[in-house]
């Protein structure tokens, strides 16, 4: 009679002999690790030379890679911030609407519409932004400029083409709206009905219930969705590259003028075709930087979810 068997031996006497599938799936998992490792290593190898670049060989005659990178990072963060500002109220509103008001067919249609919105390729958004948003934005920008020009954001001569950072942010906002609303919708659905019914039993109106119970309880989920959307907006390339024609090294708060900061991702796409020599290394280094920023954002998002969601679930 055998004594107390250690679990692994007890369970796998036969498995160990036969299980090629375990090895196969394990190697798939290792391949995944390898893929990400490869991304970091190869971007590092090809990006590092740019660190020693000078105004002689860097794109746009930048004195160093940092002089090139900072304004672009600013542009990425600024455009994404504006997009979040525009998309989050609407996205959360849609989510609340979908959960509490649009029951049945209406809710399903809204869900499908949001799904389709998420599936539209970014080049199509680029074309659409240029053909639909930019021309319609011009009179609005002129109005904002004459009436509210004293606010720094609206200062300067408004663009006559409508291809400004605000237009790019609008297109980005439409692109990230589905992420914000679908993640928020899941977070709101997870609020236990005991909480909502409790609030209603105390005589709260629907608005009071949502404001005092639902939104606070769903907050960490909504914030995670916003961070996810932020990561997406930071990395979005084609739509911004098509809508925006940036001015190198510009850091500006102005939203309506034809002189706009560029974004990292769009800059890479716009300058890639003509790049040669160390300029290519510089673009790769910019890509690594962008990766680091989006990584930090997603890390932050997970930390938020873990800290406030871990205890209750």
């Amino acid at each position: 009679m055998s004594d107390v068997l250690p679990p692994s031996e007890a369970g796998q006497v036969g498995a160990r002999r036969l299980d090629a599938l375990h090895l196969l799936t394990l190697s798939a998992a290792l391949a995944t690790l390898l893929l990400l490792g490869g991304v970091v290593v190869f971007l590092g190898i090809e990006g590092a030379p740019a660190l020693s670049g000078t105004s002689e060989n860097l794109p746009a005659g930048a004195s160093s890679i940092w002089a090139l990178a900072w304004p672009l990072l600013y542009g990425s963060v600024w455009a994404s911030f504006l997009a979040i500002l525009l998309a989050v109220p609407v996205g959360v509103g849609v989510a609340v609407f979908a959960v509490f008001m649009a029951r049945g067919a209406l809710g399903r249609w809204l869900g499908t519409a949001i799904d389709v919105l998420a599936a539209v390729p970014s080049v199509v958004y680029g074309l659409w932004g240029l053909a639909v948003i930019a021309p319609r934005a011009v009179p609005v920008y002129e109005w904002l400029s004459t009436r509210l020009g004293w606010i720094p954001f609206f200062a300067g001569t408004p663009s006559t083409t409508g291809r400004t950072i605000l237009t790019a942010a609008l297109v980005l906002a439409v692109m990230i709206l589905p992420i914000v609303s679908s993640v928020s919708r899941e977070a709101i659905r997870l609020v236990p009905s005991s909480s909502t019914e409790g609030a209603q039993a105390l005589g709260a109106t629907r608005w009071e219930m949502i404001r005092t119970v639902v939104l606070p309880e769903a907050r960490s989920g909504i914030v995670a969705g916003v961070m996810l959307a932020l990561g997406r907006a930071l990395g979005e390339t084609m739509a911004v590259a098509m809508v925006l024609s940036p001015k190198p090294f510009l850091v500006s708060l102005r939203l309506l003028t034809s002189e706009n900061p560029g974004t990292v991702a769009a800059y890479i796409a716009q300058n890639y075709p003509e790049a040669h020599g160390l300029e290519v290394n510089a673009l790769i280094w910019l890509g690594l930087l962008l990766f680091a920023v989006t990584f930090a954002v997603s890390f932050l998002a997970r930390a938020i979810v873990r800290r406030s969601g871990g205890g209750s679930r």
Binding site: M1, S2, D3, V4, L5, P6, P7, A10, G11, V13, G14
Partner: peptide
């Protein structure tokens, strides 16, 4: 024993054959 962390001690014999012998295949 398919439950993770589960263990068995002692034995079960089927017509004398030990199901938990070292060479028995679950």
């Amino acid at each position: 024993e398919i439950v993770p962390g589960a263990r068995v001690g002692g034995g079960v014999r089927l017509d004398g054959a030990d199901l938990y012998a070292a060479d028995a295949d679950p």
